[in-house]
Amino acid sequence: MAGAPDGRESICYSAGAVRVCRPLEQRRRGRVSMVVEGGRGMALTEAELGELDGGTRLRESPTAKIATEQLGKVFQARNGRVVALREVDLVIPDGQFCCIVGPSGCGKTTLLRILAGLEEHTDGRLKLTHADPTKPLNSMVFQEQSIFPWMTVESNVGYGLKMRRVGGRQRREIVEYYVDKVGLAAFRRAYPHQLSGGMKQRVSVARAFANDPEILLMDEPFAALDEQNKNLLQEELLKIWEESKKTVVFITHSIDEALVLGDRVLVMTASPGTLKADIPVEFPRPRQVYELKASPAFGELAYNVWSQLRDEVMRARDEEAVRP
């Protein structure tokens, strides 16, 4: 399938569809059209998308990088069904830095894993627009320590490129660029056990950027870091992101972090998670983390987000207390 006239490929998944990472692999072998499987996961052009039954929201958002319609996820646990996500309607335009905050256990990570193709949704539809088939669709920065202990900093950063068969010299140049960018030039041949927690997360961020995906998915990447390191990494992330303007979905439990980084903050409800509020963040860029945090507008907006979030946090806490 050659795609629509403008060369865009939309990949649309109905409930229980194939993983997103499969087209990613197949794209590498130049077979985008083979995404169809069992009539559930479909690679569609914009025109075909228009003929889809239902899917109004998907249809009406042709510029969306990510669009979901009534997206839901039910886990089959041993003692019954657990609804992790319900009725998530979400449209993220290309190039937006979108932050999602929510009480712990609300399903934010599940949502991100669905977008990453690491988890399959069980209800609704998901559309991801893959504009340039020579690039990977998404790369994820994980919450926990996720860089390979058996690889040097360089090999870790170059992992995605290697899997995409980006050749030796080009790969070295890209890796060097991002290793420099995150300030680890002196540690390029170090192994993770020689690095601090902050340095490890820098490697993780560099690995995702070096892979040059269209969408960056970040799952509380700085949650485990101390305050100073966190602020430093936020500034670095902003700097790198402002160069590339990729679409970012950034999960966090910190309102400050969401406001410092994002163009927009989505607030999720307590479990089963769905979207509760959509708050635009219109601070000018480039942003300076500390200056921004000191401004009265920032405090006002933070309070605004918190007032949305507070009830959900309370509810999540009560439910936790009730649970046996």
Partner: peptide, 27 residues
Amino acid sequence: RIYLDVGRNFGASRLETYWTIALPGAL
């Protein structure tokens, strides 16, 4: 498990997963 997730997310094939993750991780 997270290392296998990373492999999937970065498009490692099954053979590449054995070679770059499973084997060195189990070494």
